Simulated assay, not measured.
Amino acid sequence: MWIQWMAIISVLIIVSLGIAAIYGSYRWQIGTDNLRAQLTNGRREIQPKIYEQKEISGEPAPVQRFFQTVLKDKQSIVSAVKLFQQGEFNLNEMKDKWNPFTATQLFVAQRLGFDWDARIQIAPLLNAFVHDTYLLGEGNLHASLLGLFTLAKMHDTPELNQGELLRFLAEAVWYPTALLPSQGVVWEAINDTSARGTLTDGATTVSLVFQFNAEGVISTIRAEARYRDKLTAMPWVGRFGEYSIQNGMLIPLYGEVGWEHPEGLRLYFKGKITEINYEFAL
């Protein structure tokens, strides 16, 4: 008899989890729609609407090679991007414990912002829902179990705003017209294979060192200090690969990101773009 009761209880638990997952996903999607409506409503007109090579004539040599490699003259400027990702996320601070994830992400070039909406599987039928957002100059991080129970929530602190703007600048490799000087990025020479890009939005200014490989594309990015929390800032590193032509632009489909500890780089994200759709200013 007890075996039958255990079976009934197991079924009830599975059904309850399924109902909670459906309701949580529905509730979470409402929040996603609201965030993305704010992103869209905050958009501004982009100028100029096309890229011309004369724009980069005074930039550092590796930066010029980069734009000549990834863009064609008269390329329309990207105004918005929606992409789909899948990959693995390491949720453990001390050891490798990779969990699969899927995500959608919306970028808006002006006024610049993004929303990353992810599902990280932490166990069968059990997902962590994550919003990582930069909206109207403010960062937002919200993690929730099943979309119902808050695990972490941060909003609009100087440290978080800096981290989210750094993410926007790093991921501009997927929409490379956003890295143009006309779109607000200031480039500074370092050497023949690297340059520093600086971006300001409102009260927040961030810089990344971009390393370019022999083909002229971005292989790595590095921030000297990105805040992990309000007290701890560490070097932050991203690596890119699997370059592919998308809408006439050469972009990486694979990326991985981690924190640089004294003992070496510790990755926490490995992801690949499975689909990417652009809107253009012209």
Rank of each mutant, 00 (worst) to 15 (best):
Lys97Phe: 02
Lys97Arg: 11
Lys97Trp: 03
Lys97His: 10
Trp98Ala: 07
Trp98Ser: 04
Trp98Glu: 03
Trp98Leu: 13
Trp98Asp: 03
Trp98Gln: 09
Asn99Pro: 00
Asn99Tyr: 10
Asn99Ile: 04
Asn99Lys: 14
Asn99Met: 15
Pro100Cys: 11
Phe101Glu: 08
Phe101Ala: 07
Phe101Asn: 05
Thr102Asp: 15
Thr102Ser: 15
Ala103Glu: 15
Ala103Gly: 12
Ala103Met: 07
Thr104Leu: 01
Thr104Gly: 12
Thr104Glu: 15
Gln105Ala: 04
Leu106Gln: 14
Leu106Tyr: 04
Leu106Trp: 12
Leu106Lys: 10
Phe107Tyr: 14
Phe107Asp: 05
Phe107Arg: 02
Val108Trp: 05
Val108Thr: 14
Val108His: 10
Ala109Arg: 07
Ala109Met: 06
Ala109Asn: 14
Ala109Pro: 00
Gln110Trp: 00
Gln110Ile: 04
Gln110Ser: 12
Gln110Cys: 01
Gln110Thr: 02
Arg111Ala: 07
Arg111Pro: 02
Leu112Met: 09
Gly113Cys: 02
Phe114Arg: 07
Phe114Thr: 07
Asp115Lys: 07
Asp115Asn: 08
Asp115Ile: 12
Asp115His: 11
Trp116Glu: 11
Trp116Tyr: 10
Asp117Trp: 08
Ala118Asn: 00
Ala118Val: 05
Ile120Gln: 00
Ile120His: 08
Gln121Leu: 10
Gln121Gly: 02
Gln121Trp: 12
Ile122His: 08
Ile122Gly: 03
Ala123Phe: 10
Ala123Ser: 14
Pro124Arg: 06
Leu125Asp: 13
Leu125Gln: 08
Leu126Met: 15
Leu126Glu: 13
Leu126Val: 15
Asn127Ala: 14
Ala128Asp: 07
Ala128Gly: 09
Phe129Glu: 04
Val130Ser: 12
Val130Lys: 00
Val130Met: 10
Val130Ile: 10
His131Asp: 06
His131Glu: 07
His131Gln: 03
Asp132Cys: 05
Asp132Gln: 02
Asp132Phe: 01
Thr133Leu: 06
Thr133Val: 11
Thr133Glu: 08
Thr133Cys: 11
Thr133Met: 06
Tyr134Arg: 03
Tyr134Leu: 12
Leu135Glu: 08
Leu135Pro: 03
